[in-house]
Design a protein around this nucleic acid. Structure first.
Lengths: 341, 341
DNA sequence: TTGAAAGCGCTACCAC
DNA sequence: GTGGTAGCGCTTTCAA
């Protein structure tokens, strides 16, 4: 590996000068600069980022902790985070925990060990808020992203999206279409993150004097397969449903499949709506109606917030950035119920 | 941030001893060790990875360069690479280039600057083999992964999968079912990476005296949407097709959708087969028949190969690791053609 | 068994 | 403008 000193020797100057040239820190003669640049080129020199990070006291890296990169939402989100981070001059280290607490700890320790200057953690059912608080107390900038209920903030700096509102929008849409017999499929456990979305849905139905009994709800995980299974159970257990709200797009796609398997036509026999608007939502046929999260905005806010945490005084009050509200996106999977229902 | 020296002071020893305790480099008294560990715990000390990397001459990091993390294959693959890398004690830095050469260069420069010890680059139409060779000449360990034609190796260390064979398997499967009027949708340009798969398909048909004229082939990119469009064009332009081979799963899913939109039932009216076996392939309905790539194996071989490149002599001959051949996976999207066709 | 000291490659500060 | 030099936090000889 070529080092600064070698370049300096080749150019007949000293390391300090080479460094000045490379960082554009004024004070460099035009001819010297030329010679240095030539030497850099000739030797194929690349500055050692580790050394630079060490002396500057910071690696130019942010970390993003996600639970499962296999869930398509995360790559899509990571893409946006990376874009935002790069704009600010950071590399992004994607840390995939596979829902394994040990692995999450390992990554957080690494970040604590200056692997990155700070970390964005995606809010998920299993995140250990106290571990994150510990990390923050030790001085590591931490941002929790995609907190779902701005009204009840977590004990960490966070980016929040009002997803109670997502449930409201979904319910209003289905009610407006005339649905009165509804079911729901949750992509998390009853006490999990999706509870707000579900509550928004239920509350809105109630206001319209439509009931959503427990028997019309299924809980599971955030996958197509579990959505399909839940839908089979729901459609078999509760005849006459005309619409299903899934708390996420992946289970919503599963519901779509279950409907197809049962010979139901969507949206004629069953309307289906999800939440998030992942790419698959519009790529499927029928395309999925959904409540879109402001993904790119959340990603960019998270990066901004992390940067401000990196620069912030240690004991300022907990900041929370709230995104635009989610938005209804109507596609082919929702429609009026059949007149005979 | 707590440093080694602070821990040492707290424990009443010197930095060297703390280091010895932490690295388990023998020669430490039982009681000293205890005191040191206590101090580490009390101060919440985490070793600075940058400093360690600097003195050891290597960060414990590998980089993976992918063109588009939005393509679901890459996250699935990255997951396996990370798993394999972690087993060997490396962190994985996922570098997403978005098919942007400038961004790719930036990442490769960073790796050249010791951001990572070496880099695995996913083979894609746009990878710049010469840029990678330059990097390698500069002493950076580079592995090209998913080279599609072991018989014609690239000028870099690589992990190859025989995907000509994938075309062969797909063709044999369709022929065996009785298809004689076939079409193909390629997820890359005619001269792109998928040419081998397509060639395997064509050659195999020829051997069975079945022709695949140029008019039965559409070229595009590796997405659902382009697959759908290509299929619409194909099915409109060539009536009577009974089966379509897509060189990748994503376009294959697009073909499935186009068929549905045209009111064709799969596999009764049209058989569809893809290549790769991404997760979506079995999650869709009908589930997609496909030729599965040995993804996990390729990932693990890539990591192994990179590690051996990291340790290798500079001028040894170019290594190539070849995976198991791809395997046919029959699901619901292929079947016999209708008797009247 | 423990300590002292020399760097790893770089930046930043202060002389010249 | 340019050079010398002191560290950043750590590991690793080599002495004690």
């Amino acid at each position: 590996m070529t080092t600064l000193v070698e370049v300096a020797q080749a150019a007949g100057v000293t390391a300090a000068t080479v460094s000045n040239v490379l960082r554009n820190r004024g004070k460099v003669g035009e001819e010297t600069r030329r010679r240095v640049l030539a030497a850099v080129e000739a030797l194929g020199y690349r500055p050692n980022l580790m050394a630079r990070a060490l002396v500057e006291g910071k690696p130019h890296t942010m970390a993003l902790v996600v639970s499962s990169i296999a869930n398509p939402f995360y790559p899509e989100f990571a893409l946006e985070v990376e874009r935002a981070a790069r704009k600010l001059g950071y590399f992004l280290l994607v840390c995939n925990t596979n829902d394994d607490p040990a692995q999450e700890r390992a990554y957080l320790d690494a970040v604590g060990g200056a692997l990155a200057q700070g970390v964005i953690v995606m809010n998920a059912d299993f995140v250990q808020l106290d571990a994150l608080q510990d990390l923050r107390r030790r001085g590591v900038p931490v941002v929790l992203c995609m907190w779902e209920r701005p009204q009840e903030p977590p004990p960490l700096p966070c980016v929040a999206v009002d997803l109670y509102q997502a449930g409201v929008l979904a319910a209003e849409h289905l009610l407006r279409l005339g649905h009165r017999r509804l079911g729901a499929v949750s992509g998390s456990e009853p006490s999990g993150n999706h509870k707000w979305r579900l509550q928004g849905f239920i509350d809105t139905l109630h206001k319209a004097d439509v009931d959503l009994p427990q028997t019309h709800i299924r809980f599971g995980h955030d996958t197509i397969d579990e959505g399909r299974n839940a839908a089979h159970s729901l459609l078999a257990g509760v005849p006459g449903l005309t619409a299903v709200f899934a708390t996420n797009d992946l289970p919503a796609l599963g519901v779509l499949q279950a409907a197809a398997e049962l010979g139901m036509e969507v949206p004629r026999d069953l309307s289906v709506i999800g939440v998030t608007d992942i790419q698959l939502a519009h790529q499927m046929r029928p395309a999925l109606s959904t409540v879109a999260m402001p993904t790119a905005e959340a990603a960019s806010l998270a990066v901004q917030l992390l940067q401000s945490e990196i620069k912030a005084e240690p004991d300022r009050p907990l900041p929370m950035l709230v995104t635009e509200p989610p938005k209804l996106v109507v596609r082919g999977s929702t429609g009026k119920p059949r007149a005979d229902r």
